[in-house]
Simulated scan of single mutants.
Amino acid sequence: MAIPTEIRQWILTNKPTGLPELSGPNQTFTLKTTSLPSLKDNQVLVKSIYLSNDPAQRGWITKDVDPERLYVPPVEQDGVMRARSVAEVVESKSSKYNKGDKLVATTGWAEYSIQDADKCQACADLPGLSVTHYLGAFGLTGLTAYYGTKIIARAGKEDTVVVSGAAGATGSMVVQIAKKLLGCKRVVGIAGNDDKCKWVENLGADLCLNYKMGNFKQDLIRATDGYVDVYFDNVGGEILDLMLTRMKKDGRVAACGAITDYNRSEKPGLKNWFEVISNRIEIKGFIASDFVAQGKGPETVKELVTAVKEGKIKVGDENETVVDTKFEDVPKTWMLLFEGANTGKLITKLV
Rank of each mutant, 00 (worst) to 15 (best):
E238L: 04
F338H: 10
R222G: 05
D219M: 10
A124I: 02
S278N: 13
F232M: 13
E282P: 00
K47E: 15
T160G: 01
N342E: 14
L240S: 04
E158Y: 04
A223G: 10
T28H: 08
V253C: 06
S113A: 15
Y211W: 04
Q57T: 09
P298T: 04
N26R: 12
S52D: 09
Q121V: 07
E320N: 10
V323Q: 07
T30C: 11
G128Y: 04
Q176G: 13
N272V: 05
T144Q: 12
G237H: 06
P20H: 05
M213K: 14
D101E: 11
L346H: 05
C197P: 12
V104R: 05
F286N: 07
R58G: 11
D250I: 00
D66G: 04
S92V: 03
V228I: 15
F29T: 08
K185A: 13
V315H: 06
K249A: 04
L31G: 08
A191S: 15
S94R: 06
S23L: 03
E318D: 15
T17W: 06
G136Y: 06
G189I: 05
P20E: 09
T62I: 14
L350D: 10
D66W: 02
K314Y: 14
G237D: 15
V315F: 05
Y211M: 00
V188Y: 03
G257C: 12
G236I: 07
A83I: 00
G108W: 07
E318F: 03
N202W: 01
T62R: 15
M173P: 04
S113I: 00
M1W: 05
T33D: 10
P331Q: 12
K15Y: 01
G100Y: 04
V161T: 03
S95N: 13
E328R: 01
E282K: 11
F291W: 15
Q294C: 11
L39F: 11
Q9F: 00
